[in-house]
């Protein structure tokens, strides 16, 4: 146990948790406005692909990141349009968009499978710019949520769009933009995956990270600062997985690969507040700190 070992360990854990943290933040922003977004995994994959392909073509990873943001913004635009204006079922829309973007990413990525590109350069202690952005964004999101007018309006819309509307805050506008901005941040997470954490492109390379991010949103009680804690925990799990694989233990690789999914289930069951689903309603969401109107439509004339 020397200093160097601790440093590299920390570095790996932080690197492993960055894409998750960005995806979790994106999901939190979207859900705080009262819209469940289940398309995180597909959006992330789309971000990973765009970042990789653009970097491959232009040789500039920063351009790749920029276009990943744009493409994910576009994907989320579809979600925002359907759920806020067309009043479609949020869970089904999220799932449909998830399949759509996974298919799209795998379709366009076919010619790039197994290739590698320019790696995102490290700027500080072996960490790249997205790591810094991720942690700064987490703190920034927290400050914006609880200390600015825009943030408080967003929370109000997520809690009760009708009351917010009566106070002159347009719920449609807030829900629409929260999802697009959230999707863009998720795209940053995808970009970090294909440019820095595991540079390259493989079909379905997110391997369910977007879903783990959705689990982390619940684990962190929709709080950006707690999200840092949760993602670092999963970074630690990835490190253990990596560590065991390089050490060469008797544990079959399949069981090591199961670890993140198993731990997600275990963590969710342990940290879930004990709410029995007698009546799944406002009381349940109060106990779990979920936005009260999460998953519900808002229509002006209807009650």
């Amino acid at each position: 146990m020397n200093i160097e070992f601790i440093l590299t360990t920390t570095q790996i854990i932080v690197l492993a948790s960055t894409s998750l943290l960005l995806a979790t933040l994106g999901a939190i922003i979207s859900e705080k406005s009262g819209v469940t977004n289940l398309s995180i995994d597909g959006t992330m994959l789309m971000g990973a692909l765009t970042a990789f392909v653009i970097t491959k073509i232009s040789g500039n990873p920063y351009l790749g990141i920029l276009l990943a943001i744009l493409s994910c913004g576009l994907i989320s635009f579809i979600h925002a349009l359907l759920t806020t204006f067309f009043l479609s079922n949020q869970i089904v829309t999220g799932l449909a968009l998830n399949f759509f973007s996974i298919g799209l990413a795998n379709f366009f990525g076919k010619n790039y499978v197994g290739e590698v590109s320019e790696k995102l350069p490290a700027i500080f202690a072996g960490l790249d710019i997205l790591v810094l952005i991720a942690f700064i964004l987490a703190v920034l999101t927290y400050i914006i949520f609880y200390n600015t007018k825009i943030g408080l309006n967003l929370l109000a819309v997520g809690e009760d769009p009708r009351v917010a509307d009566n106070q002159g805050v347009n719920p449609f506008k807030y829900r629409f933009w929260a999802q697009i901005i959230g999707g863009m941040i998720v795209g940053l997470g995808g970009a970090h995956l294909s440019l820095a954490y595991t540079p390259g492109w493989v079909d379905g390379m997110t391997a369910g990270r977007g879903w783990i991010a959705i689990a982390l949103v619940i684990f962190s009680f929709w709080n950006p600062l707690r999200a840092i804690l949760g993602t670092l925990l999963f970074g630690g799990v990835s490190f253990l997985q990596f560590h065991f694989q390089t050490m060469g233990t008797n544990i079959p690789a399949a069981f090591l690969n199961m670890l993140p999914y198993l731990i997600t289930i275990v963590v969710m069951s342990f940290f879930a507040v004990n709410v029995k689903v007698k009546v799944a309603s406002a009381s349940a969401s109060a106990a779990t700190a979920a936005p009260v109107s999460l998953g519900r439509h808002y229509v002006r004339e209807e009650r």
Partner: peptide, 27 residues
């Protein structure tokens, strides 16, 4: 069971189980 007993989100759990079951079966 996790939903009924602990109020855990079923979407995430059922999706995670996909990965677990497939990895286990392939093993």
């Amino acid at each position: 069971i996790l939903k009924v007993k602990r109020g855990v989100n079923e979407v995430v759990v059922s999706l995670m189980l996909n990965y677990i079951v497939i990895l286990f079966t392939e093993y």
